[in-house]
């Protein structure tokens, strides 16, 4: 693994041990996920234990710990969205993409990627636009008032072509 880009990121922070979240965010922006090697490398470089860094990375649903598909679909499971049918939305997204239901990894993170690595699905807790519930986010775009029957149309924008 080429770690030069991590060195570059670290050099932007003058006191790296206190800027861990920013560093992890930058790495994720570049690689789309946080690899074990990257976390280990950061730990060695800034002198924060590997277990601490892993703890932080698993705490925030924002961080991906597995390689991700080209497009990331986050289904909001916050209170407002939950009440307005987020569970059904999630089930339907999973169904349309043909990914398994209720698989979550041992670290408690929920993450599914289609076989062709085109889409990844995860869940989030409130995007802060509850008035538009239920909400999903695809990459950087927010979709509000989502209805199940709209899902195929939305997914098609991102190259979904099944059925």
């Amino acid at each position: 693994m080429d770690k030069r880009y991590i060195d570059e990121i670290l050099s932007k922070y003058n006191e790296p041990s206190g800027k861990l979240l920013g560093i992890l965010e930058d790495i994720q922006e570049k690689e789309k996920y946080l690899s074990k090697e990257a976390l280990k490398y950061v730990s060695e470089k800034i002198g924060v234990s590997f277990s601490q860094i892993y703890s932080i990375a698993t705490f925030y649903s924002f961080f991906n710990l597995q390689p991700v598909g080209e497009h990331i679909i986050s289904v909001c499971m916050g209170t407002a969205c939950h009440v307005r049918g987020a569970v059904e939305i999630l089930k339907n997204v999973e169904y349309l993409l043909g990914v398994g239901v209720d698989e979550s990894t041992e670290d408690g993170k929920f993450f599914l990627t289609t076989e062709d690595k085109h889409f990844s699905v995860n869940t989030a807790r409130c995007f802060g636009c509850c008035s538009m519930a239920p909400v999903i986010r695809i990459d950087d775009k927010i979709y509000g008032y989502v209805k199940i029957k709209d899902l195929p149309k939305i997914l098609k924008e991102y190259g979904w072509d099944k059925k």
């Binding site: 234990s49 277990s51 601490q52 703890s55 698993t58 705490f59 408690g108 993170k109």
Partner: peptide, 10 residues
């Protein structure tokens, strides 16, 4: 000062 274990997830 070993830092072997920590909380995972939340």
């Amino acid at each position: 000062g070993a830092g072997v274990i920590n909380f995972i997830g939340r």
